[in-house]
């Protein structure tokens, strides 16, 4: 309702409350409606964030290795949505639930510091992480982010997607995004490893988001390796997660300005 001026506005107001109308308009005591009592804003306590001392920080590296014959890659059937199938030239898309490369390298494993940073609070990055829906596929399949950081979900496809992180610790949500829709920008405020992400419209679309309360996490690349930089010296439990292979933990000790390595080996059948 855009305009309640003049006679029409009067007419409307009067239809609602005749007496009030006479009083307000008639005796010139019209006043703006009392502003809703606004709660006094509490001065927000600024959290004290831990500052990493670059002079003593070190690096944790490692690899995720699969032993045994590499699983045969399956193709994905996108026939359910012909518009999706058309986005792929040869019509073939490989399922990357588990991708094993040369020398047993496992890609898309999520690695993070699980224990050893208690009491330290890290500021979430200002830049969002991006999850793209492209070719009726989530890119990347595995994404790491810090609690409180923004997740930007983009739809680059000419079809409608409905991204749905099935969060259990954080609030679950889903967002419909037709072609050209603005990106969804959401936060997960609590650590949660892992959140399964699906598209409500395309059953084959799957992704995973690892939310941790520190900046030390990584997703392995095609060579199965990972690297975490700027880690304060200490003793840490590192967890590696892969959607098919499950999880493994290792303890590493990082000396001041030192390097530590962890190789996680998953036995194949």
């Amino acid at each position: 309702m855009a305009n309640l001026s003049g006679w029409n506005g009067m007419r409307w107001l009067c239809g609602l409350a005749l007496t009030a109308c006479v009083f307000v308009a008639g005796c010139g005591q019209a006043s703006a409606p009392t502003a809703a009592t606004s709660s006094v804003a509490k001065p927000e306590e600024k959290p004290v964030y831990f500052k990493v001392d670059a002079a003593t920080a070190g690096t944790v590296t490692g690899r995720i290795v699969y032993t045994g014959a590499a699983p045969v890659r399956k193709t994905v059937d996108m026939d359910e949505d012909p518009q999706c199938a058309k986005l792929h030239k040869n019509g073939k898309v490989y399922d990357d639930t588990i991708a094993v490369g040369k020398k047993g390298a496992v890609a898309n494993a999520f690695v993070y510091i699980k224990k050893g940073l208690e009491g330290k609070k890290f500021e979430p990055p200002k830049e969002p992480v991006v999850m793209d829906q492209h070719g009726c596929w989530f890119e990347p399949r595995v994404l790491g982010m810090q609690a409180g950081q923004e997740l930007k979900a983009v739809n680059s496809d000419p079809v409608t997607h409905n991204i749905h992180p099935k969060a259990k610790v954080n609030r679950e949500w889903n967002q419909n995004q037709p072609e050209g829709a603005e990106a969804a920008v959401r936060k997960f405020s609590l650590p949660e490893v892992m959140i399964r992400v699906k598209c409500n419209i395309h059953a084959w679309m799957k992704a995973w988001v690892g939310v941790v309360d520190n900046p030390y996490f990584a997703v392995t690349g095609a060579d199965g390796s990972f690297e975490m930089k700027n880690v304060p010296p200490g003793v840490y439990t590192i967890e590696a997660w892969q959607e098919e292979l499950g999880t493994q933990e290792q303890e590493v000790t990082l000396a001041a300005s030192g390097k530590a390595a962890a190789v996680f080996t998953f036995k194949g059948k």
Partner: peptide, 24 residues
Amino acid sequence: NGVLSMGPKRFLVLVPLSLLVVSC
């Protein structure tokens, strides 16, 4: 976003509005 029009109710206001004019 059209303005709401009260249609049949409009004549209800004739009386109070004229009171208003006279009284103030």
